[in-house]
Amino acid sequence: MIRKAFVMSVYPDKHKEYEKRHKEIWPEMVETLHQYGASNYSIFLDKESSKLFGYVEIEDEETWEKVAATEVNQKWWEYMRPVMETHSDNSPVTKTLTEVFHMD
């Protein structure tokens, strides 16, 4: 199991919409995440900075990287584009964080 953490940004006026969309996440998106090795996935919001902190556990990097190309993931990125910072391909602007401490 590999722990991954990352930071993204939601638009300041879209906090509620971002949360709403995740409360109503498509079952096929959740199923796809599981199929590509994701578990224990959480996203947290710092309302003052509009920064999102994501944490996910994955089985392996190679499998996880393939989820981006799935049809449902591409649709999800397009759906989320109006509420958060994205690249031209609709993927979220993401900064990967380096783990410096872990305790079970």
Results as ranks from 00 to 15, higher is better:
Val72His: 00
Asp89Cys: 08
Ser88Glu: 13
Trp77Gly: 09
Trp64Thr: 04
Thr70Ala: 03
Glu62Cys: 05
Glu65Asn: 13
Asn90Thr: 12
Asn90Leu: 12
Ala68Val: 04
Trp64Pro: 00
Ala68Leu: 09
Trp77Lys: 12
Asp60Arg: 09
Lys75Val: 08
Glu59Phe: 03
Trp76Glu: 11
Ile58Phe: 01
Trp76Leu: 12
Arg81Pro: 12
Ile58Ala: 01
Thr86Lys: 05
Met84Cys: 07
Asn90Ile: 07
Ala69Trp: 04
Val83Asp: 06
Glu78Tyr: 15
Glu61Arg: 04
Glu65Arg: 12
Ser91Arg: 06
Thr70Phe: 00
Glu85Met: 06
Tyr79Gly: 14
Ser88Phe: 06
Ile58Glu: 01
His87Asn: 14
Gln74Ser: 10
Arg81Asn: 14
Trp77Arg: 14
Val72Pro: 00
Asp89Gly: 10
Asp89Glu: 09
Arg81Tyr: 15
Glu78Gln: 15
Glu71Asp: 11
Asn90Cys: 13
Asp60Ser: 07
Asp89Pro: 08
Val83Ser: 09
Ala69Met: 07
Pro82Cys: 14
Glu62Phe: 05
Lys66Thr: 01
Glu59Ile: 04
Glu61Ile: 10
Trp64Arg: 03
Ser91Ile: 00
Ser88Tyr: 07
Trp76His: 11
Trp64Ile: 02
Met80Ile: 14
Glu59Gln: 08
Ile58Leu: 01
Arg81His: 15
Ile58Val: 07
Asn73Arg: 06
Glu61Lys: 09
Met84Asn: 08
Arg81Glu: 15
Asn73Leu: 03
Val83His: 05
Asn90Phe: 14
Met84Trp: 03
Pro92Ala: 04
Ser88Arg: 11
Glu71Lys: 12
Glu85Thr: 10
Trp76Lys: 05
Trp76Phe: 13
Asn90Arg: 12
His87Ile: 01
Pro92Cys: 01
Ala68Tyr: 07
Ser91Tyr: 01
Val67Ser: 03
Ala69Ser: 13
Glu65Thr: 06
Val93Arg: 03
Glu61Cys: 04
Thr70Glu: 00
Trp76Met: 14
Ser88His: 09
Thr86Asp: 03
Ala68Ile: 08
